[in-house]
Design a protein around this nucleic acid. Structure first.
Lengths: 270, 270
DNA sequence: TTAATAGTGTCTCTGAGACAGTATATA
DNA sequence: TATATACTGTCTCAGAGACACTATTAA
């Protein structure tokens, strides 16, 4: 979005932005639960960038920028993700191309079409990344408490959230919020936090086991009081969702655990 | 983040293309069924445009072209649809933005990102439109018998087909292939043709009635032998599918029966 | 042994589908 | 009245969810 000066004569500028979701635990590890909220859920957070030039100077916006002439759309999304969070995405998918005429303010000289991606990153890694990105112009916000946003980015985020919630229900992408290994309770809490409702542990377990998307590692959590839960790993040989005829490993995610695709699945696209 | 260098002089070109689907009856009205195929289904057809300049000169391609500086993405899709078919779409939705580096041939000078829409049009109107568009450079093809295609348009069409089949199963868009009024048998045949399998008439009826997407007109088909079926109309007050937080009437389809949206539903996107 | 969470068994309900059966307009 | 198609009733089965129950480990 964003760089009004750049494009040539009177063509349409093309930008790539990314909605990056992470799940922040409600209670710090080691810190006791707050007595008033015994069952507090983790909540969704996303990083925003403060604009340093007009239009919308000083307001917060989605990370992104012009598409480089020599990079794929998805690579551009992964690049801006890395430069704002110092992370690699565990899941990355195209969200939508926004291109209506009214999305820039009236005085704007140039028209911008934004191809927006959405991504899931590991919450634990976010903490480290915050030390790497020591910029005052990047900050994380809860999706329940967003600031005023530049352009139509409020609409974009709302749509990304809706897509995330939809997709968590019919596919198995939630593990992208977690590390390599996780317990069923952790994975269930991710689902609960995203969907905003509690899920039956028994049924949740059965569904996952029958779907074959997770495999037991044989290890258990250590250091807990009481019976330690088993640790599971994501089954990489099973696609998290049916992406249709064009599924293939994504270059931008080649070295990460979760594969993506240049196409959305749209088993259920609105 | 945000604005690295402003892209060089060479920028990325932006095009909008549209995959247009119509359903052609297997047997002409009045013409008897072929004895070998008593239950022949209607089949999907789409219009292609023959390229008159390199690259891929002489090959067939999806209708489309550069995005005009003063038109919305969806308007551009509707415009190219109208100029190749002389029709207005009954359904129009963004499919995907294709932008990998390898989608143009090696010798190509420019890089193009294509934002692709897909549309459904009324089969009956196609016949009239063919008389209006008296161009040798436009032709309709069965999706089962496509010619060699320019660029990556074969991949795009395959993906559009996959999306159409998916969406017919979980939403009510199939009526966009038909006229204002239709019988349940006609609508069922549309579903059967798109999905490639036969459906139980009783269950199909029940599902539609409980979904409230159609309303009886009170009229019946005339001129048939034997009991004439009731005619139904699409219930415009019910959204064909849940499009999420951003549903609104689409300007490009304002005067058509079916509304669309600037966003895909992705209740089920791959 | 107790506490606390991990993990299992089983019941009910709902919706999809199969398929037999009834209704009705025309010849 | 015969016939072909429109339309209805009802059975079975599979999956989702509710919820009581058992298992296991560390304090």
């Amino acid at each position: 979005m964003t760089c009004p000066e750049s494009p040539a004569a009177a063509s349409v500028a093309l930008a790539v932005s990314t909605v990056i979701f992470a799940l922040r635990p409600a209670s710090q590890p080691g810190k006791p639960e707050h007595p008033d909220r015994p069952d507090a859920l983790p909540s969704l957070w996303l990083p925003l960038v403060k604009r340093i030039r007009p239009p919308y100077e000083g307001q917060w916006a989605l990370p992104g920028g012009p598409l480089q002439i020599d990079e794929d759309l998805e690579s551009a999304a992964a690049r801006t993700l890395a430069s704002t969070t110092a992370l690699a995405p565990n899941y990355l998918e195209q969200l939508y191309a926004f291109g209506t005429l009214d999305r820039s303010p009236d005085g704007a000289r140039d028209r911008v079409v934004s191809i927006v991606y959405w991504a899931l990153v590991n919450a634990a890694e976010v903490i480290h990344s915050n030390e790497l990105i020591a910029s005052e112009n990047v900050a994380w916000f809860s999706v329940d408490d967003l600031p005023d946003l530049a352009f139509d980015h409020d609409v974009i985020i709302e749509y990304a959230l809706w897509r995330l919630r939809n997709k968590v229900e019919y596919s198995r992408i939630a593990h992208a919020f977690l590390g390599d290994t996780f317990t069923l309770a952790e994975l269930r809490e991710v689902h609960e936090a995203v969907l905003g409702r509690s899920l039956d542990p028994a049924n949740f377990r059965r569904q996952l086991e029958s779907s074959n998307t997770i495999v037991p590692t044989g290890k258990r959590v250590t250091g807990t009081s009481y019976r330690p839960p088993k640790l599971y790993r994501y089954n990489q040989s099973v696609d998290p969702l049916d992406r249709g005829p064009l599924s293939r490993a994504s270059p931008a995610l080649a070295d990460t655990a979760t594969t993506s695709s240049p196409l959305p699945d749209e088993s259920r696209t609105p």
